[in-house]
Design a protein around this nucleic acid. Structure first.
Lengths: 250, 250
DNA sequence: CTCGTTCTCCTACAGTGTTGGATTGCATCC
DNA sequence: GGATGCAATCCAACACTGTAGGAGAACGAG
């Protein structure tokens, strides 16, 4: 029938299912009357598979067709559960925020809470290197992202922040974590490709007269001190939060 | 010959140029023997036009064909000057950094320099709303971006920062500016589309039991206080930079 | 004039997001 | 049982994308 060399993969899941269901003895595999073989696609499965593919191949290689193929379905079937590809990305991004498990009850010091929030958020963003850049290009309004924000807001509230100062402090914290995580992710996947680091170093040192200060301090990023790099920035932020200016003046 | 309805636009720039060049009296338009009518495409023109299109239609609508059409050329001609579309984006992004004009000589107080750097960078990023998100998804290694970094580095150096603390402070500053600018850009272009803000408010207030603190403080972003929002975060950062912890401890 | 260089164009390919309608599977009611 | 209705999937197609290979035009040099 279909002359197209459609089947790249030898496994056609649909046909396979049909044959199995109608074969003699297949009753035992059907697991009872009430089990419908149909609902293979669901919000959860789509989200989970999208995260899996994003982790493996990055955000540019994620297409509806690949996602559908991985799910054993066809691309257009996704559009029954999802309005557009952006929806998939939103779902996947929010699923990342779901991985950040925050303590039910806040600890004694709000600084510790904020620190736990920042390091935790950073680690889940590094676990999914595509997430950081994505979080900067769309509003974070998923339920899990809101839950994370709520945690930071309450922690800062017990720290004495109110009104506009509260939201400014929370935003500043989030921007730092997302920015540092995404830049770390970018640099690490670039250094995987080729010896980019040495090329960058050479380029900067070639124009050492234009960027004298930069040239002297840049190779520091070569060492794998991303962790301490992040912690220094975090302490800087916490020091700013501790200063009286942050809460008093307009 | 070509049955294809190829010519969507009535203006075929190539034919038009040919006719003009060979028409009688066209000498006056040719501006002398040495001027070649050929070099219409150049690095600078490509970059400038890309920025223009990005400003107008956003990053998703920028395609090589549209860019080429705007330049009066064909898409594949771009690939002589540019290896890939990412190159175009890199060039455009660096052109944005070029718009940030920094004082030749640093002012008396390094805090003022840093403040000027942050507000200036923010304003150019807001002038090109696509730039913020883009800056988070690729390394900033263009000459103009490096020049900006150099400025911040030297300012922080006179502020007493050295070695790892210097780069950490600079990175923290940059992450904040880029993050806040891109989130502002995202929210402003979303609020243009539909009445998203009220929808978001309603959604949060609907789950007010899950996000009690958030629900009370979120509508603050409805007011157009993005400027003061940014300035509060900036003061918070500057307070952190002023704290002794930032430079002393490891 | 020919040659080589530089730049632009044509053709083409594989792949993209997304739409409208046809088709299947299932539950329910007559 | 058969018919109806709904939910979910599939099929075919469209306009469009980034990009490769090579042909072709304009130019300067020999």
């Amino acid at each position: 029938m279909s002359a197209k060399p459609d089947g790249n993969k030898g496994t056609d899941p649909d046909q396979g299912r049909k044959v199995l269901d109608n074969a003699p003895g297949a009753v035992w595999f059907r697991a009872g009357k009430t089990s419908r073989p149909r609902p293979q696609l669901s919000h959860e499965r789509i989200t989970a598979t999208a995260v899996e593919l994003l982790d493996r191949d990055g955000v540019r290689k994620l297409s509806m067709r690949r996602l559908a193929e991985r799910l054993g379905a066809h691309a257009t079937s996704l559009y029954w559960h999802v309005a557009t590809k952006d929806d998939v990305l939103d779902l996947a991004l929010d699923a990342v925020f779901a991985e950040l498990d925050l303590p039910e009850r806040h600890s004694a010091s709000w600084q510790e809470d904020i620190e736990a929030f920042m390091t935790g958020l950073r680690s889940v963003l590094l676990r999914h290197p595509w997430a950081g850049a994505l979080a900067n290009s769309r509003p974070l309004m998923g339920p899990n992202a809101l839950r994370c924000s709520e945690f930071a807001y309450t922690a800062l509230t017990t720290g004495g922040f109110e009104g506009v100062h509260l939201s400014s402090a929370a935003a500043t914290i989030t921007h730092f974590v997302i920015g540092s995580a995404s830049s770390e992710a970018v640099w690490q996947q670039r250094s995987d490709e080729v010896a980019t680091r040495s090329a960058v170093d050479a380029h900067i040192r070639a124009h050492i007269d234009e960027y004298p200060t930069l040239a002297g301090h840049f190779p520091l990023l070569e060492e794998d001190d991303w962790d301490s790099h992040f912690h220094r920035g975090m302490r800087l932020l916490l020091a700013g939060l501790a200063s009286p200016d942050a809460q008093e003046r307009s």
